[in-house]
Each structure stands twice: as C-alpha cells, then as structure tokens.
Design a protein around this nucleic acid. Structure first.
Length: 192
DNA sequence: AAGACAGGCAACCGCCAGTAG
DNA sequence: GCTACTGGCGGTTGCCTGTCT
C-alpha cells in the first residue's frame, strides 16, 4: 500500500474513476481504479484536492472573518465550518486556522480557543506567541503533552444535525449583534 | 554556498457514529 | 443486542520550501 504525496498519474486515475463511477465505496475503489492506496487516502485526496468545486488559492478577508465567527460559534468543528464556506475544505480551514489565525488572534490579544480577551499586557501576548511557536517542538518531544482530552472531544453538550440548526447558524452569522448574544463554543446550545 | 531553522500544507492516524447482517 | 464494516472527523505528523545565519 503506497503512502505519501500523490502523483499526477494517481490523481488522473482517481479522477477518471470517480467521474465514471461516482463517489463512494471507498474501500473497493482503489482496486477498481488501479490504485495502490487505501480507501481513506483516496477519499481524502478527492475531497481535499481533486473535487471540481474545491477552491484553491488565498483565503479572502471575508472568508477569514467568517471562519473566525464560525469558530467562535462552533469551536473546532472544521467540517461544519467548511460547510458554510463554499469551495473550502475542512482540512484547508483547519490548517489556515492553526497556521495563521491563532497567531493573528493572539497578536490582537484574543484567546483563539475561547475568543475572549487575553491578559492585556504585551509581555503576556508575546509569551503566548512564543508558547505557540514552541508548542510544535514540544509536542514532537513529548506526545502526551496537552492530549489528555483529545479522545473525549466528541462528548458534546449539544448536537448539530438538522436544518433547524443550519437556519439558526445563518441567523447568528448574519446578525450584526451576534457577538453580544451567542453562547461560547463550549457552552450549552439547545437543539433547534 | 550551505547548513539550520521555521512555516505551511498535504497526508496520515486513530477514534467515533451509523448501519447492515 | 452484538459484531463487523464503512465513512467521516479532528488531531497530528512529516515533507517541502523559503528564510536566516
């Protein structure tokens, strides 16, 4: 089973197969398409890169603003956030958040996890940025650091699954005053 | 010029939920 | 009710590239 970056030939095989047979049945797809990849890898490549409606290129200021607002509402629900931003994938948004927006928010004195103001002193802010920059190195040295609650992150206090919530979300996004009224991402939101 | 370092991003991993048998 | 299978998700890793020393 091959791993690592996809080649142009593999992309063509996958695209050609899906345009012929459609999406789905990822487990059997690689064999039928003549690919030496696992089904998950094929699905990921299609969803994040090969799909015709995937938008490439820089994220605009409007999109960035929307991501921040949606993250404030939803937390790290990348697929839900991506679902509100046409052409963008959850992976792309997640990467953008982790590499750009966390630093930007910290620079603005906002805690990217809670969206609440950080301690206002400049030394505290620079300390946070420095911590952020070193976090990756620390993680590589110690995989247990900060992972305690990772597996339990799905134990949500609310559920997002229907059109009611979608409308609810739309109204919040479009509400200029929403910042005054919305619950924080880790607070309870009743089902719509 | 070249080695070290950091940032960005594609891809992988492990877990969970849904579902068919 | 249970088990196995599958798709989907979020967290994490590792490679590539650009910048710095």
């Amino acid at each position: 089973m091959k791993k690592g970056p996809w080649t142009r030939e593999e992309d063509e095989l996958l695209s050609r197969y899906i345009s012929r047979e459609g999406e789905g049945r990822w487990q059997t797809l690689p064999k039928k398409a003549g690919l030496l990849r696992c089904g998950k890898s094929c699905r990921l490549r299609w969803m994040n890169y090969l799909r015709p409606n995937v938008k490439r290129g820089n994220i605009s200021a409007d999109e960035e603003d929307l991501i921040v607002r949606l993250h404030r509402l939803l937390g790290n629900r990348w697929s839900l956030i991506a679902g509100r931003i046409p052409g963008r994938t959850d992976n792309e948004i997640k990467n953008y958040w982790n590499t750009h927006l966390t630093k930007k928010l910290i620079g603005e004195g906002i805690d990217p996890k809670t969206h609440k103001p950080l301690c206002s002193s400049s030394s505290a802010i620079s300390e946070n940025i420095s911590h952020l920059n070193s976090a990756r190195t620390n993680d590589q040295m110690n995989h247990t650091c900060g992972n305690e609650d990772k597996s339990k992150d799905h134990t949500d206090s609310y559920y997002i699954s229907d059109d009611g919530f979608s409308s609810f979300l739309d109204s919040l996004i479009n509400d200029e005053m929403c910042n005054e009224h919305i619950p924080m991402c880790n607070e309870h939101i009743p089902t719509a």
